[in-house]
Design a binder for these strands. Structure first.
Lengths: 227, 227
DNA sequence: CGCGAGCTTGATGCCGATCAATGCATGTGG
DNA sequence: CCACATGCATTGATCGGCATCAAGCTCGCG
């Protein structure tokens, strides 16, 4: 593999891991069209996936049909860990745009992990990070209002995009307002209203899915719930 | 070790694991008084803990002082995994009553895990379960109202207690209303009001912290959000 | 061009937060 | 043993934020 260059750049940039970079066996690229599932809740876990290109959302539904978006995933993110409990995926992963993923067959991955202590440790850290992210999300949903949730969402997304070499200020949303609303536990209308409010406050500039952060400090303040 | 009996009973009962039972090295019992921390957010991760006796809550705070209870933990539960990302605990673990835990030193645990593939796999499953639990919690906070959240809370607790050999109907809460409120993203008053409501509906019988489930079916219906 | 999906904006109502008072149990010191 | 303080829980009154219902709006696309 001749990709030590980009990998080092990746790993130095942000809290972001690459199993493939650590010698996990990959089995080629898979393409997923916009709106199509990479895997579905209930599918057998056959592989882990590292996002190569495009963005995904993961979501979960229960018997009653209640649906909740659990996360948005950018290039470099690992997908499929949700199935590790009993080798069955607990959520859907759906492409928000045309996407490509590295496929890491689960069986061979396990064999390799059994040999490489570093690979194990890396996996643990990735799972631990997922746990932490979930807990931060719980804190957010439990303590912040609509405005704060949106501010936190924008900051998080901007930061993750920046870690991948994009601008920290301007971004193009790949997900719909509906998905954002579900992710934040709100309705579409509330999302829309608070976005325009943040625009009126000159904190954001919004043009459809084109977002610019005008006042990061104010956004931070709003996201931490200090009024 | 002569405890294969109880261990088999444990493992057969419910979705519940025991690292100690799988040969993870333990280093004795530790006692924690009511209200005292087993570890604190920011502490270095030195060990994992398996609850032996009593109950714990885990909680997380951020800079702004916002606090959120993330979980309640019964005998048999594993504590400390939150620190695996960077060997620093991300949350507090506080005893709700006088408690005892098995201490599993992290260093020796890692050595053992490097040797035992089964131990690794078990750890992955436990972490995966934690991930799933967090996602279910997100779904709950994102889609259910106060009444549904309380119903789901009661059902979950009853089920976990039942898995440990207690009654499925009657239970004695170890946590305060304040903790419950924080856990569910509500205020104490709302918790109190909805508890009395559930009592008026003859779904629960409530005597301070003594709870009896009178109508499990109705409780289930309320917890799934079907009005 | 016309249709539909996604987004915005407005009017109304309800649920849960907030503020406030009281009850009740436990603990503590005079 | 009583007086008082303190923490926890319930109940009531009021207010506000978000959901809900409803109507346009924009944009992309067949």
């Amino acid at each position: 593999m001749l990709n030590t260059g980009p990998i080092d750049r990746y790993r130095g940039l942000a809290a972001r891991e690459s199993l493939a970079a650590l010698g996990a066996p990959t089995a080629g690229l898979r393409k997923v069209d916009r709106g199509e599932p990479l895997f579905r809740q209930g599918d057998a876990l056959t592989a882990l996936y590292e996002v190569q290109l495009g963005q995904f959302k993961t979501q979960r539904s229960d018997e009653g049909g209640r649906r909740q978006v659990l996360g948005f995933h950018l290039a470099g993110d690992l997908l499929g860990l949700d199935g590790i409990v009993d080798d069955v995926h607990q959520q859907d992963a759906i492409a928000l745009e045309s996407a490509q993923v590295w496929t890491i067959p689960y069986g061979t991955f396990n064999e390799e992990a059994a040999r490489s202590e570093e690979l194990q440790h890396e996996l643990h850290r990735i799972m631990g990070r997922e746990l932490t992210r979930g807990q931060e999300m719980l804190l957010l949903l439990g303590t912040l209002g609509a405005e704060g949730r949106l501010a936190a969402f924008m900051l998080d997304l901007a930061q993750r995009l920046q870690a991948r070499g994009w601008s920290a200020k301007a971004m193009l949303l790949r997900m719909s307002r509906i998905d954002i609303a579900s992710y934040l536990g709100l309705t579409v209308e509330t999302v829309s209203r608070n976005l325009t409010r943040l625009q009126q406050l000159a904190v954001l500039r919004i043009d459809h899915r084109d977002i610019e952060i005008l006042d990061p400090v104010a956004l931070e303040r709003i996201a931490t719930g200090s009024p």
